[in-house]
Design a protein around this nucleic acid. Sequence first.
DNA 1: GCATGATCATGC
DNA 2: GCATGATCATGC
Length: 451
Amino acid sequence: MDTRKYKTKEAVLKRAQEAIGVPLGSIDRTGRLRTGKGAIGTVLEESWFGYSPNSESEPDFPDARVELKVTPYLHTRSGIRAKERLVCNIINYMTEYQKSFETSDFWHKCETLLIMSYEHKPDKPKSEFTIDKAILFSFPEEDLRIIKQDWEKIISKIRNGEAHSITEGDTLYLAACTKGVNASSVRKQPFSSTPAKQRAYSLKSSYMTRILNKYIFGAEEDEHIITDWRILSNNTFEDIIIERLSPFYGQTVDRLAAYFEVLGHAKNKNELLLSRMMGVKGRVSQTAEFQNANIVPKTVRIQKNGKIKESMSFPTFKFNEIINEDWETSSLKEMIEPTKFMFAIFEENVDGDYVFKRIKFWNMPAQDIDEVHRVWERTVRIIKDGVKLSFDGRVTRNNLPKQSESYVAHVRPHARDSNDVYPLPDGRVMSKQCFWLNREYIEKIISEEYR
DNA sequence: GCATGATCATGC
DNA sequence: GCATGATCATGC
């Protein structure tokens, strides 16, 4: 048996749907399920469709031109969420730059996807998992516009000899994620002698969440910022947003609040103003584009003296969890690398009023992600070795990485008070901590020349 | 009850 | 003046 058995998309889909509800343990005929990563996909390829896994550039079902993807989702309190990004083919830096999107390896393989999804439950054995849904997926035109821009962005870095500085945050829906045994898996690039990390095309997990909700589970769609996607043929998404907001540059917060009738001193006042300026009814962060692309709006306030008051925090981490993580799959890396930030910059004027200056889209450059990696490694090392704690009668000091030790990030408490603690591996407790981006680092990003 | 963004207090 | 630890305010 081989994949030539399935000549049409319909035949592939029909066979896939027959797998719905069948426990994977009873599908598996080769004992693959007990192996590690990618086991579930391999079981369906081998034992259900009857072909050997291949890493060729052809789609899995060449006659039907369909690529099989088996992907996990999670049921969370806030709904269905993709458990991970969807990884496609490895990017061949040496050849891909010569192609167009239409002739690219990505499009050749992934134009039509057969998505089979299962719910991942941490406490359940894989043999009891079942495929819950199976659909044929073609990218809708509105998404394809953005995906093409993403592809161009990746390719332009290759053409500029910057394949080593590609990161997932560069792009919106289609990203280049690291793929390989470890971070030292590198390959040649055509226009630079610097080796670049091996990367694969992938659909960001934020975008996968949207596919799951809208196309697989039929949930209602979030509000769109761009209602006519045709404008994306001549403008990038970021340019369109900047164009919409620039008429408001130079206005004070008070004037904007009066103009849009945003009352009171709500903590989220600035986000409300952003929504109004963009012409969005709900919250910017909840729009389809921001959700899909994992764009996080952040307000930055620059004081009269040109400084920013505070560093930027990430969620607290549990000491007993972080010591069991690998950097490549760590929650910190997952929070930083695929994320794009939209900084809304407010500057204090001579009267002490804050003026909306501009916005800036930013994602952390590869080099700085490596620096965060170093801070993370040190943090894990210190926690494993046993944190040194000393109480001076007022505050408890620790020896986690300080702001002075890195130009990018540090570790600092983020708790309700000093009794708000998590256990340490050795049984002691310490106030909840999190990673912070240094105040000065944020200042540098904001002050950099902008487009 | 907790996460998150914002801000404060102290001492070098 | 600023780094570091502590704490507050708000919203879900």
